[in-house]
């Protein structure tokens, strides 16, 4: 019975959670939020799905894989992808910082690591919006948090 309720709630919360975390991510530069909070929210929502359906079910139904132990999760299962996710997040964060340096080399100036910039652009429908390079970094933060948290939760959950 509890499972049914939980699954129902999960179905409701899952999309909502993604939307909220997306909003938090986007507004971070101007309002409370940012990559970290968005990341934790996303991870929590997915964790909720695990709680409702179980890790193995997610593996089987969503990814069509057969995994049992924690180690198998690490090697073949979704944890493998989470690991890639946080590594990629780190890579994005560093790459964003390196881009400035690279731009410096191309233009023959010295621009330090992680120098950010921003532009205001006018986009149809949205009007006057701001494009900040720091968002790339924040995206990296988001990916790291989601990947790392889900890794830990999956591993603990699989025990």
């Amino acid at each position: 019975m509890t499972t049914v309720i939980l699954r129902t709630i999960t179905r409701l919360v899952l999309p909502l959670g993604f939307v909220v975390s997306f909003a938090f991510f986007l507004q971070g530069h101007n309002l409370p939020g940012g990559g970290f909070i968005a990341g934790v929210l996303t991870a929590s929502v997915v964790a909720l799905a695990y709680l409702a359906y179980g890790l193995d079910v997610v593996e089987e139904d969503v990814f069509g894989r057969e995994v049992e132990t924690a180690v198998e999760h690490v090697q073949h299962g979704v944890v493998r992808d989470y690991q890639t996710l946080y590594a990629a997040g780190l890579a994005v964060a560093v790459a964003g910082g390196l881009a400035a340096m690279l731009y410096g080399y191309l233009t023959d100036t010295t621009i330090p690591f992680m120098t950010q910039t921003f532009r205001y652009a006018t986009v149809p429908l949205f009007g006057h919006i701001e494009l900040a390079s720091a968002v790339v970094f924040d995206l990296g933060v988001y990916a790291v948090v989601v990947g790392a948290l889900l890794t830990i939760i999956s591993v603990v959950g699989a025990e």
Binding site: Q83, T84, Y86, A87, A88, L90, A91, V94
Partner: peptide
Amino acid sequence: ALVTAITCIL
């Protein structure tokens, strides 16, 4: 070192 660490995971 950081790039190497990340690459080693990937």
